[in-house]
Nucleic acid binder design. Structure first.
Length: 877
RNA sequence: GGGCGCUUAGCUCAGUUGGUUCAGAGCACCUGGUUUACACCCAGGGGGUCGGGGGUUCGAAUCCCUCAGCGCCCACCA
């Protein structure tokens, strides 16, 4: 039965994925072997596979598969994140398209819709990961809102509250008027924007003049409660303590002094709006100013917005500017470029806003987390450069705002028993809360119905930060077997964009709740960009369809394509051509296999060239395995792949197979065949983590395998130490072969015409290796001669000179030109070497070994020049 | 505004402690090819004064200074 010369991935991939699943190879249970654990960075439950996921999960799968081969009990825990704000936004949008407003629904009704959405679309991304070949332990699939995951989150909140680390605060927060929720500082993206800077005159109450302030947000004038100047600003000394009248609303506010104000900026006069600016809030507290909040949650103006009430802030800004102009108090406007905070999710402009929120104190949590990364090797970052970023953030932490004004997520377990803002208790359940509330309120007759749970939910990251612990139920049940066996996990693979959101917080959680690091190594992938270095995004439409890529190039091809150009931490400039290269590699291996399987076997003696080439490849393989292991140890996956790629393509296919390949139609001897098969199998093993489908297919097609002999659970090859001398000799062989090929090409001697080589000088290649050369270059013989041969082509390798007598006309002219070029170069080289050697300070200061080498170079160069001159002379006659 | 990092072949990147093998790899490019496993191939080849300038050193892609360009992170500049 003929095997196709094209490798067809789609059918094969499905077949082996099903086979692996059916045989439970991905599933892990604690046993005697050491554990190797990875928890997946849980993708959003409603997400679909994009290039970032492809890269990230390919890397994880490579690590997991290699660990499995190396005899670890490999466990890769998959799962999804409920992604409260992102998912809620999607559900709201979907409902809206069906004519339903969120505000028309009760919380319970809305959550029903959200769960339905989750059940319908959640997990799509996990199915897509299977297409990529990911060997996750699917029996362990988790969701951040699974019952026991929720319980872990609530327990954590309660414990931290009881410890005094969680508190409630009326604070300035980042308000997303579109999603109508707060955002953490990390969720705010600052973008440069051109805006108008408005200069507005405020009349002094005593009619003695006016002060001019500059603002980019004139609508906030309505919330002004003071004007502030620098006490050292001579221009305004006399005004401090006076009163001005706010334009439009006519409120009287004081002029105060604080050295916070920058004399140089704008007019040196700052309006203070404590409700809508972080610094103004601080100044407001310091100077005991009133707070006037002019905004509704949706970003429109409220009753303090006077006749602008109900207008959106952007609209109101223009209207107020017009009115100010009409009143003649709009002194001037300028355009400025400044940074504006926008929501990471909705891209709405963030409004600083005062509100009641829950916060987590970070200071104590940070200390051990900082120590683990920077001062011990408990946690290592790859690449290391991200440790700097980490330190910077960890030493400038602010308390974490963990409440969100959303419905989708873990509802905050605070229960109010009275109207007062402090009339609440925090408990794991409403039942428990009731008991606490009875005590707290002093009312023993309190009922469940009178308890009202805080409406907010927790920030998504407040569940994700527990992920490596909670997937093994380590919060609720820290003594359980699995948690003790799998935790701490080994490697975390993620993008640097969530270093703070997630990685740092997991480390803090790890030390806080388990006294251990949650993982040992963190591998940061780069961002996937397109060829023009643009981020891949939906709006640009530059993100390829992941499943189509797999379909076109095969999962193995795509995996190789992604890996080839993705050094850790470096952005990956994605290009289909890389996947094409991966597909080409698959095809190459496929055809090598086809060649081998096509051979007929007999019992003739093994040719000497086959024997030595096989020995050489075995050595070369061992050397490569050591190199590949080293690359993996340093998390240089692309380098590990490239080493494998060159080993298989160049050394195995182009050299070994070409040497052992019998003439067309001829059989191969059994010994060589068996060795080739063994070496092929070793190749499959080291390639398997990168190209799991292709390798399993060939592995199984090559020999009938029982269930416990599948490649996925084979053993990772060990290096036994390798014959370096043989590798060195073979390098000479390669060079001689290459030179002879060049000669053939230059002189247009077809391969079918045999040539012979005379060797002058020292020649230490074994007969076996000479046989290799003969086979590859159609050489009749290679004999050592006492005299140089005139009128022959020549080349030189090391201290040995090779001559090829040719029968036909030799292109003497071109040979002379070539020799002259070489002579010129060598003369220049000699000059520089002699320059060095005549420098007394070099001879005196450089290490002896270096000087010796230079002297040898000089001698070699002189020798070569002599030879070249003679050759030119001879040829020129 | 503060901090970190980058600049090496047309492209994407390696270059561990300054010194044989240090100027490399893959891709792309050019030339040739029934050497019947593979044209998703084979063979051969060209290509860089290591961003500019200065310094330290016997010796610098590698260390120092400076200039230019780029990127990232943090920060409340109205």
């Amino acid at each position: 039965m003929a095997i196709s010369s094209k490798y067809d991935s789609s059918e094969i991939e499905q077949k082996w994925y099903s086979y692996w699943m059916a045989n439970n190879y991905f599933h892990s249970e604690p046993d005697d072997r050491p554990a190797y654990t990875i928890v997946i960075p849980p993708p959003n439950v409603t997400g679909i596979l994009h290039m970032g996921h492809m890269l990230n999960n390919t890397i994880q799968d490579i690590l997991v598969r290699r660990a499995r081969l190396r005899g670890f009990n490999a466990c890769w825990v998959p799962g999804t994140d409920h992604a409260s704000i992102a998912t809620e936004a999607k559900v709201v949008a979907k409902l809206k398209s069906e004519g339903i407003e969120k505000s028309d629904l009760t919380r319970a009704e809305f959550l029903d819709h959200a769960w339905k959405w989750t059940n319908d679309y959640g997990g799509v991304i996990l199915e897509q990961l299977k297409k990529l070949g990911c060997s996750c332990d699917w029996d362990r699939t988790k969701f951040t809102m699974d019952q026991n995951m929720n319980a872990a989150v609530i327990k954590t909140f309660v414990d931290l509250y009881n410890e005094g680390l969680i508190y409630r605060g009326f604070r300035m927060v980042n308000w997303d008027p579109e999603a109508q929720t707060t955002l953490s500082d990390e969720e705010v993206i600052y973008e440069e924007k051109q805006d108008l800077l408005y200069y507005v005159d405020y009349e002094l109450e005593d009619c003695s003049g006016h002060v001019t302030i500059a603002t980019t947000r004139p609508e906030t004038i309505l919330g002004d409660t003071a004007i502030c100047v620098n006490p050292n600003d001579e221009r305004y000394q006399s005004l401090i303590g006076k009163t001005v009248i706010v334009p439009v609303c006519g409120r009287k506010i004081p002029i105060i002094a604080d050295d916070y104000v920058d004399i140089e900026f704008g007019t040196g006069c700052l309006k203070i709006t404590p409700a809508h600016d972080m610094n103004d809030k601080i100044l407001g507290e310091k100077h005991e100013l009133n707070i006037i909040d002019i905004l509704n949650p949706d970003g429109t103006l409220n009753q303090f917005g006077l006749h602008f009430e109900g207008q959106d802030r952007a609209e109101a800004r223009k209207a107020i500017a017009d009115e100010l102009a009409g009143l003649g108090v709009l002194n001037k406007t300028e355009t400025i470029i400044h940074k504006v905070g926008t929501s990471e999710r909705t891209h709405a402009v963030i409004e600083p806003r005062l509100s009641d929120q829950w916060f987590l104190k970070m200071e104590d949590l940070a200390a051990p987390a900082l120590e683990a990364v920077l001062n011990s090797d408990n946690i290592k970052f790859f690449p290391k450069k991200f440790e700097n970023t980490y330190r910077h953030w960890m030493t400038n932490l602010r308390d974490w705002n963990i409440s969100r004004q959303l419905w989708w997520g873990q509802q905050i377990p605070a229960y109010y028993y009275g109207e007062g803002i402090e009339d609440f208790v925090v408990a794991n359940s409403k039942i428990e809360a009731l008991e606490l509330a009875k005590k707290a309120s002093g009312n023993p007759n309190l009922t469940l119905a009178q308890l009202r749970q805080d409406a907010d939910v927790l920030d998504t990251w407040f569940s994700s930060w527990l992920w490596p612990i909670s997937v093994f139920d380590g919060i609720n049940n820290p003594d359980n077997e699995e948690f003790k066996y799998y935790y701490p996990t080994n490697d975390l693979v993620t993008g640097p964009d969530i270093l703070f959101f997630w990685v740092a917080r997991m480390i803090m959680a790890g030390y806080k709740f388990t006294d251990k690091q949650p993982f040992t190594n963190v591998y940061f992938t780069g961002l996937v960009r397109d060829k023009q270095r643009r981020k891949m995004s939906k709006s640009l439409g530059n993100s390829p369809d992941a499943l189509k890529l797999i379909n076109d190039y095969g999962a193995d091809g795509v995996r190789v394509g992604l890996l080839l150009s993705a050094a850790a931490g470096n952005d990956l400039l994605f290009d289909d051509a890389l996947c094409q290269q991966g597909k080409g590699f698959a095809n190459k291996i496929w055809n090598a296999f086809r060649l081998i399987k096509g051979w007929e076997i007999n019992d003739q003696a093994q040719p000497t060239e086959s024997a030595v080439a096989l020995k050489w490849y075995a050595a070369q393989f061992d050397r490569a395995v050591e190199e590949i292991n080293d690359h993996f140890d340093k998390y240089r996956l692309s380098d590990a792949l490239m080493t494998t790629y060159k080993l298989i393509w160049d050394d195995f296919c182009s050299w070994l197979l070409e040497v052992v390949k019998p003439a067309y139609g001829q059989p191969i001897d059994r010994e060589t065949y068996n060795d080739v098969i063994k070496l092929l199998e070793n190749n499959l093993k080291i390639l398997h983590p990168f190209m799991p489908f292709l390798t399993e297919e060939i592995w199984q097609q090559n020999a009938k395998r029982s269930k416990d002999q599948a490649l996925i659970i084979a053993d990772w090859p060990k290096s036994h130490g390798f014959d370096n001398a043989l590798i060195g000799d073979f390098e000479s062989v390669k060079e001689i072969v290459s030179q002879l090929r060049s000669l053939r090409k230059a002189q247009q001697i077809p391969f079918k015409d045999q040539i012979e080589v005379m060797v002058f000088g020292y020649h230490d290649l074994s007969e076996d290796l000479v046989a290799v050369i003969k086979k590859l270059t159609n050489l009749s013989h290679m004999k050592v001669v006492e005299e140089k041969v005139d009128g022959a082509l020549s080349f030189r390798i090391g201290s040995t000179e090779y001559f090829v007598p040719v029968s036909g006309p030799v292109d003497v002219e071109s040979e002379i030109v070539q020799l002259k070029d070489e002579l010129k170069y060598t003369l220049g080289f000699l000059k520089s070497v002699q320059g060095k050697l005549s420098n007394e300070r070099f001879v005196a200061n450089a290490p002896k070994a270096v000087v010796v080498v230079e002297k040898q170079k000089e001698a070699d160069a002189l020798d070569k020049i002599h030879m070249l001159q003679k050759r030119i002379e001879t040829l020129s006659k």
